[in-house]
């Protein structure tokens, strides 16, 4: 179910990022370390689900057929999902969830800030809403990096482990393929390759403040944008898409 319009394809990627991470965050519901944090995680999940709906909605509009946001979310298989791999990794423990969130938040703030000046007015408007949310998410996730890094021996150990496990999934956030290069050339898409130096500086500063050591950069995995996913995504989709697959074509 690929779609020809490049802007639509781009919007679907961004929607996939938001939906898949929102799904992972929503898995925390009723499982948070305390009630306030449980609610805060659901809140962030809700922001992402909302973001996914806006991007899918726009993609559907551009595609010009009668597809809806739900067709994009529920009726495509792994190979057609274009989210970055870091979003689909299982939620892990609280340190893993927060470390991922932090690494993604630093990226999102810069990304959405840039996308706000996209020549595509709709993408720019969605980014305007998203950047406010991501700024708030980042304040929270950065605080948790400091707390867990500077808390107890156990929290420090868990956070270091999480950062080590995530590190090789971060370079993918700055890769550009032909679609994005061409759209960036027209001022529609964000040139993510340019965001890397600032991301690196900021993340390293936070890791230092949280007494974390910087992981060895000797591995890296990517392929999400081309639909080459981890095995985790298929299981996520079988959960996410269960209803639409078991009872196709109905109103809910």
């Amino acid at each position: 179910m690929s779609t020809d319009n490049p802007v639509s394809q781009y919007a679907v990627r961004l929607a996939d990022d938001a939906l898949i991470l929102g799904h992972r965050l929503s898995e925390w519901c009723s499982r948070g370390p305390f009630l306030e944090e449980d609610l805060a995680l659901s809140n962030v999940a809700l922001d992402y689900i909302g973001r996914a709906r806006m991007f899918y909605g726009y993609a559907a509009e551009l595609s010009g057929d009668d597809r809806s946001e739900d067709d994009f979310a529920f009726l495509r298989d792994c190979r057609d999902f274009g989210n970055l791999l870091i979003h689909e990794l299982p939620r892990g423990d609280f340190a893993f969830t927060m470390a991922r969130q932090y690494l993604v938040d630093v990226h999102s703030v810069a990304f959405m800030t840039d996308l706000q000046s996209s020549t595509d007015a709709t993408l720019a408007a969605i980014a305007g809403k998203a950047v406010k949310e991501s700024n708030y998410h980042l304040r929270r996730s950065r605080d948790w990096m400091l707390r867990l890094g500077g808390g107890t021996e156990e929290s420090h150990r868990r956070l270091q482990h999480a950062v080590d496990e995530l590190w090789g999934f971060t370079p993918e956030m700055f890769e550009m393929d032909e679609l994005e290069k061409s759209l960036a050339g027209q001022g529609v898409a964000v040139d993510v390759s340019r965001l890397q130096p600032a991301w690196d500086t900021e993340v390293r500063a936070t890791l230092a403040a949280a007494n974390m050591s910087i992981p060895e950069e000797d591995w890296q995995v990517s392929g999400g944008r081309q639909g080459k996913h981890t095995e985790w995504l298929g299981h996520l989709l079988s959960d996410l898409q269960f209803m639409q697959r078991a009872y196709p074509g109905l109103e809910w």
Binding site: L19, S42, M243
Partner: peptide, 30 residues
């Protein structure tokens, strides 16, 4: 009560229903 309803957040049939359910369960926690 967050648990029986939370049981369907990841499987809600549409994105709209998912967002409503997630917000609802969050309200209950509140």
């Amino acid at each position: 009560g967050m648990q029986p309803e939370g049981n369907w957040i990841t499987r809600a049939p549409t994105l709209h229903r998912k967002a409503i359910l997630l917000a609802k369960v969050q309200d209950e926690g509140g």
